[in-house]
Design a protein around this nucleic acid. Structure first.
Length: 483
DNA sequence: TGAAATGTTGGGGCG
DNA sequence: ACGCCCCAACATTTC
């Protein structure tokens, strides 16, 4: 007789879940547990939108587990104590979990593993990444700081090492606890009792845009691979179009694994024989790997610039009002406001627009990238410490393989290039729904009479002069030492 | 996964 | 026919 505990975190799926598979293989009884650890909320910095998604993801996962004869046991409190208590109550022989890779959770989990080893066998797995962060390094053993060589090395390994994309099978059944064991469990909570969904209308409104859970993740992927992927290189840049995979939140919570995504994309073909569009998509999955590699080797870059010059960068003072207007989508720049409103309404923003709003906050408003990083982390359903920090440092020009600081997006040109008809702007900024496409990305250029009729803010700053100000500010740190 | 400034080229109008 | 200028159109450089 053996009782295994599977501790779930960011791996809320049945397919390609090595911890779950191993438990079902090795144990006569398996208990699936999720722990709402108040410390974890600060450690992994779970934002409000993410908590709502998590609630629905847990519900979906519990349903999946029930279809296999099991269910999700929810506990609250310190993870280590909760696991120790559970192990003792059930006389557990094994504990399994899939590893998390953000630096703070790595440290915490090391301690938990050491403590639990005193009472049971503990085994952990990689279910979150295709490559361990300590794999896929440069020849000299140091991590890549540039994406292209990271990708090339990754593609080569993927081609030569098919086991990397081997998936753990979903268990046919999950042997449940017996009645006696069930009785011994104490302080079990329901998912609703965890209180992840605030009693506010925005949460339901936001979730009306999504279908959460493993089943939805898989069907989202297959629809994406059916059609949009074949025009991905172009289509992913058009925010009014569904040209992106929309898998980010599913991946973050582990409703689907990156291995599964790549294995399905490849369909037996090699990484180097993909079409350009397919390869562009594969690269996005590998960017996520790159982000985890960076955060693993340079953990301080969660909130500190990798490029040391930026420690001395002179950001603007007294920016609270500008920050607030940016958050609310009231900057007076249509594509920026459209993006920020899409984010607030849906918990997601199109990637092209993420780059535009980031460039605007950092360069036109001279607000530190950390401010934007924090807002995204709190409002995105796909908020991910590694990807988010990397993305913001990319925009700021302070990260690995970042856009140079002088690369300032012009939101008018970006709008005219990627939202030609203005459909995206009109969708999220209804004040501009009747503005001609000639002016929809720069309503301030409308003739005075028409402009006065619009109920839309004047721009916070002039695009041209704020661009020059950013470049001048960058000049001051340019000569200084980079690393 | 920029944009603006500056440089170059070549066709066409025109004296 | 020729030189000159203008100015798109494109290329290169700079931030």
């Amino acid at each position: 007789m053996s009782t295994g505990i599977v501790w779930f975190r960011q791996d809320l799926r049945l397919t390609d879940n090595p911890a779950l598979q191993k438990a079902c293989d090795e144990c006569t009884t398996v208990v699936c547990v999720f722990i709402d650890d108040p410390l974890e909320q600060t450690l992994s910095q779970l934002g409000e939108a993410s908590r709502v998604w998590l609630h629905h993801s847990l519900k979906a996962f519990d349903k999946s587990l029930r279809s296999k004869g099991s269910s999700l046991v929810c506990l609250t409190g310190d993870s280590r104590h909760a696991l120790e208590r559970l192990a003792t109550e059930l006389s557990a022989t094994h504990i399994y979990w899939n590893r998390c890779y953000d630096p703070v959770t790595i440290e915490r989990d090391k301690g938990i593993k050491t403590a639990l080893k005193e009472i049971t066998k503990v085994e952990t797995f990689n279910a979150m990444l295709v490559f361990e962060p300590w794999e896929n390094l440069k020849g000299d053993g140091t991590p890549y700081r540039v994406f292209t060589p990271f990708w090339k090395a990754a593609a080569k390994v993927l081609d030569s090492n098919v086991e990397l994309l081997q998936l753990a099978a979903a268990p046919a059944t999950i042997p449940p606890l017996n009645a006696g064991q069930l009785k011994k469990l104490s302080d079990v909570k329901t998912i609703d009792e965890l209180g992840f969904v605030p009693d506010k209308p925005w949460a339901d409104q936001m979730m009306s845009h999504w279908e959460v859970g493993e089943m939805s993740a898989i069907s989202t992927l297959s629809h994406f691979l059916e059609e949009p992927v074949h025009d991905y290189a172009q289509g992913r840049n058009i925010p009014a179009q569904s040209g992106t995979s929309k898998l980010s939140a599913h991946l973050h919570f582990g409703e689907i694994s990156p291995r599964y995504v790549l294995a399905t994309l490849f369909e037996g073909k090699s990484a180097t024989s993909l079409t350009d569009d397919q390869e562009t998509f594969a690269k996005e999955i590998v960017w996520r790997e790159f982000a985890y590699c960076l955060i693993f080797h340079f953990p301080h870059t969660i909130d500190q610039p990798l490029d040391k010059r930026f420690a001395k960068f002179e950001w603007a003072k007294e920016t609270k009002e500008h920050e607030r207007r940016w958050q609310l989508g009231q900057t007076g720049v249509p594509i920026v406001d459209a993006g920020m409103r899409e984010l607030y309404a849906t918990g997601w923003m199109h990637n092209r627009v993420r780059m535009v709003v980031a460039s605007y906050l950092i360069k036109n408003l001279l607000v530190p990238w950390q401010v934007g990083e924090r807002w995204f982390r709190n409002t995105l359903v796909d908020a991910d410490l590694a990807s988010n920090a990397m993305g913001w440092q990319w925009s700021a020009g302070s990260g690995a393989d970042a856009a140079p600081f002088f690369r300032v997006f012009n939101p008018v040109l970006q709008g005219e290039k990627f939202d030609k008809s203005g459909a995206y702007v009109r969708r999220w900024v209804p004040e501009l729904s009747n503005v001609d496409k000639k002016f929809v990305h720069q309503p301030w250029a409308l003739p005075e009479a028409q402009r006065k009729l619009l109920d839309y803010p004047e721009p916070l700053v002039d695009l041209k002069t704020s661009r020059v100000r950013a470049l001048d500010t960058f000049q001051k740190i340019k000569g200084t030492k980079k690393v």
